[in-house]
Write a protein that binds this DNA or RNA. Sequence first.
DNA 1: AAAGAACGCAACCGCGGTATT
DNA 2: GAATACCGCGGTTGCGTTCTT
Length: 313
Amino acid sequence: MGRAPCCDKATVKKGPWSPEEDAMLKNYIEEHGTGGNWIALPHKIGLKRCGKSCRLRWLNYLRPNIKHGDFTPEEDSIICSLYISIGSRWSIIAAQLPGRTDNDVKNYWNTKLKKRLLGRRKDRDAHHRQSAAATTSETSTENMNDAGERALSASAMERIQLCMQLQELQNPLGAAHHNPLVWPGCSRAATLSNNSFNSNRSTVTLAEQGQSISMNEHLMSTQLEGGAAMDGGLGSPSSAENSNVISMEAELEELLYGEGNRSGKAGAVDGGVQQGDVDWWSYDQGKSPAGCWDFAPEATNAVFQDYTSVYDI
DNA sequence: AAAGAACGCAACCGCGGTATT
DNA sequence: GAATACCGCGGTTGCGTTCTT
């Protein structure tokens, strides 16, 4: 037995809001506040809208100081950094971007940033399918990996891919072959994979405060659950650790805009994937052992194990 | 110029968490 | 402790706009 609906769907209006409805809602809230009860609000105003719809409209559109469009490179960097560390926690990510709503950030990620970073996936998948069809000698290990990949959510897959890209950038010589993936800001993963955590510690510039803090400190401060991603924040990093802290921003910048565009990244924002961007899906195995899905199956398994352990999939 | 495809964004839906009774 | 109601979130959908053929 499901929960009773919050409103009568037969009498409630749906679809785009009219300027009149916007004005009614805005005027009422500015004068009286929400009253702590969104469900009752539309009745008080005389709107034929669901309370949830009113709340969404207010938070995403009518609220003062809302910014729309034109995400800055700094905002791009923050979104990517946080997405890699905490996944699709849009409300938390949006909280670091003054004037941005979670819906805005989510849409921006889905329509722009994800494509910019992972846009090669379709081509790569098509190529992979062709290769698979051309040969009947797939190993059982490979099949297991395919199943493992399918078992992960799209979000998890994206985060794995992004982390691998970052690791590749940080360690182009392929040492990552011996260093299973470490999630930025996650010492538990580092422990599980017997790896150094320091080189992957992220630094996020908080646009609102104009200061830089480590991703771990940041995540602790955002009161995320005491799970995996937060463990890296336990205790203060030693001076040795501090000396090894590498800002993720530069790497993200490179991923987002390509090395050739780092100085002119603003222009690249609107251009999508361009020549010079990191060609993630075209990496071959010899060139990038840990930087793509083609690397050794045992490494893939380690990645999945780490990931599923840490994120409790 | 027209048709279809792709894109971008606003809005909706359903679920989990939490407060209240 | 159970039931209920609401809030807030993330995923998804629908539709208008823009681009491509």
